[in-house]
Amino acid sequence: MTQQLELEGVISDSQLGQRLDQALAECFPDYSRSRIKEWILAERVSLNGKTVAKPREKVMGGEAVLIQAEFEEEVAAKPQDIALDIVYEDDDILVINKPADLVVHPGAGNHDGTVLNALLHHCPSIANVPRAGIVHRLDKDTTGLMVVAKTIPAQTHLVAQLQAREITREYEAIALGVMTAGGHVDEPIGRHPQRRTHMAVTELGKPAVTHYRIREKFRAHTRLRLRLETGRTHQIRVHMAHLGHPLVGDPLYSGRPRPVKGWSEELREFLRRFNRQALHAAMLRLEHPITGEMMQWTAPIPDDMVRLTELLRRDTEEHGFDY
């Protein structure tokens, strides 16, 4: 399916000497510069009625612009009637609270039954937005808040906010070991050199910054509040493992929990069966991509993490552990 749209405008006199793709990106801020460059190369842009096909061409200012914009259907996946926990929705964006065991994008081993399939069913027009409007991901077993763009202009602005680090994302987590103080990790993350399904702190990785503070200490665990400054794959999981405090239940970056003397059978069994990383996207704050309004949402801690916290707290109280 193809969506076509005519965009009209006038290049400002103050843009004299700018590259064409740069000038058009400023004239049409709802669309990314890379997309505008594609339209230029596809000969879909005309200045004063004359087709131009070179993004580097300089503008003089005052030219009338016509873009015969075309959007190819970006998503090949099929719509599926999968329930979404919708926290907020308007004409431009959608915020969902993702449960555990739900993959965001189709991929190897997960061809359907994903958030993307659910979005296509809930909002069919989102098929025309790249990646079905998904701006950022959560790992399969990480729960919590995700924002989705329902239109291309909304996606363009949200991606720009992410790149400028203007979207605030805070997480709740439970880590192995007792941490003494909050802080931050500023270590690059890239693909693990041997384990291709893993990420790792590596000099060849991309910059990654995670801030964390202690919410509660237990006998052998720590409850944390974390804030992402960047958004690398598995970032929190990798950074916490790098500190020597991997997340409870993390199947990739944490070993089996070592029982602590005095644990109740209930706590021991609960930890043994906790088969996902104890990580939840609890707060999301951003500027609405169209209205400019600052908006914030929170998602309650999921039941499994609430129960784990209760058991760890009870264990700590019973043994009179005092920091």
Rank of each mutant, 00 (worst) to 15 (best):
M146N: 05
H111K: 12
T197E: 15
P106W: 11
D322K: 07
I301Q: 13
P130T: 14
L16R: 15
A64S: 12
Q3A: 13
P302N: 13
R215H: 04
I134R: 14
G320R: 07
H234I: 02
I126R: 07
A281S: 01
T143M: 05
R219K: 15
G17W: 12
V65K: 08
L24W: 04
N97E: 13
A173K: 05
E43N: 08
A160D: 10
L284E: 01
I290V: 15
E269V: 02
A53Y: 08
P289V: 04
R137K: 09
L47H: 09
I152M: 10
H105M: 09
D91P: 08
D92W: 15
M240Y: 06
I134F: 11
A76C: 08
I152W: 10
A149P: 03
A160Y: 08
D250M: 07
R33C: 00
Y171M: 02
V201H: 04
E26H: 10
T2H: 13
N110Y: 00
E72T: 13
S125K: 13
R225W: 14
Y212R: 12
T298L: 07
V135Q: 14
D81H: 04
E6Y: 06
M240N: 11
E43L: 06
M240W: 07
H319R: 11
L116V: 09
P300E: 11
G262R: 11
I40G: 07
G107C: 08
T2A: 14
